[in-house]
Simulated assay, not measured.
Amino acid sequence: MNCCLSLEHLHNEPRLVQELQAGNEEAFATLYRHYSPILYINVLKIVQDPAIAEEIIQELFTRVWQKKDAKGIVENFSGYLYRIAQNLVHDFFRRLRRDQQLMKRFGSIATRNYEDVEEQFYQKQSSEILQKAIDQLSQQQKKAYELVKTEGHTYKETAEIMGISPFTVKEYLAAAKKSIRDFLVNNINLLALLIFVFCLAGRHLS
């Protein structure tokens, strides 16, 4: 997925994090300078508002400083940043529900990112949200969708299994994908969170 940039580790990161935990402001500044631009770009791609993205990043590193004694951050500092960022983005989605103008604008952004998110669902095969969307399909749409997307059959093979034409398989799949997309977009806060999670979770965060 190409929507986000990866969080690359610093070569001396464990030492810097240990110094951060000891209250070393210079170590904190080094970590901030390294990670904040990458995180800002990633968050901006999701929220599409520079001021909101900057607010999220500033709050993220404020929490890092305030909770610098947290356990386990030396071993996986980038993962720690990711978890805080995820929580802050989730908070943004809660605010989104109360702001209709922002919700409308964000809905178009999430829709444009849908294809990438759907592809990540297929690869991970672990999304409860996707399964809920699939379960709402008609029996024929669901069968065609699962044969092609889950089991990897061709349109021709699916047509033979279902006793229909390849053209009808194509129509079922098109209708199924539209239904799934509509389901996810109607659950806009979940879709938005998933866009962010899949942007970062597949990268080098551990």
Rank of each mutant, 00 (worst) to 15 (best):
Y35N: 01
D99Y: 01
E128Y: 15
V17F: 05
L147I: 14
V17M: 09
K156R: 11
Q21I: 05
E151N: 11
F196V: 11
A85I: 06
R181N: 06
I73W: 10
Q141C: 13
I41F: 07
D182N: 06
L44H: 08
I56W: 04
Q131A: 13
P166H: 04
R63S: 14
E55W: 00
E157W: 06
E19F: 14
E75W: 03
H153G: 02
E19H: 14
L39S: 05
M1Q: 13
G163S: 04
Y32T: 00
C3S: 12
E13N: 12
Q58W: 01
I41Q: 11
L44I: 06
R105N: 07
K170Y: 07
S138D: 14
I41H: 11
E119R: 15
S206P: 14
L5P: 04
V185Q: 08
F167M: 11
L190H: 14
Q100N: 06
I84W: 09
L60F: 05
R63C: 01
Q86A: 10
V47D: 03
L193K: 11
Q21A: 08
E19S: 12
T150H: 08
I195P: 04
Q101T: 10
A175S: 13
K124R: 15
E160P: 00
E119C: 12
S36W: 02
Q139P: 07
G23R: 08
F106M: 15
A27H: 02
E119F: 14
I109M: 08
E115W: 04
Y40C: 02
Y114Q: 05
Q21H: 04
N42A: 07
V43N: 00
L147V: 09
L31N: 03
L173C: 06
Y80L: 09
I57W: 07
T111F: 05
A175P: 00
S108V: 12
M162P: 01
S179I: 03
E75M: 06
Y172N: 10
A175Y: 02
Q131R: 15
L7Y: 04
S36G: 00
L16N: 08
Q141I: 14
A29S: 10
N113P: 00
E160M: 10
E26N: 05
A29V: 03
Y80I: 07
D99V: 04
Q48V: 02
L193G: 08
E25I: 07
G79K: 04
V74Q: 11
E128H: 14
S165Q: 09
F28D: 03
K142V: 12
P14M: 11
R94V: 13
Y172S: 06
N187Q: 15
Q140S: 15
L20W: 10
Y145P: 12
R98G: 00
Q139W: 11
V148C: 14
L200T: 14
C199M: 13
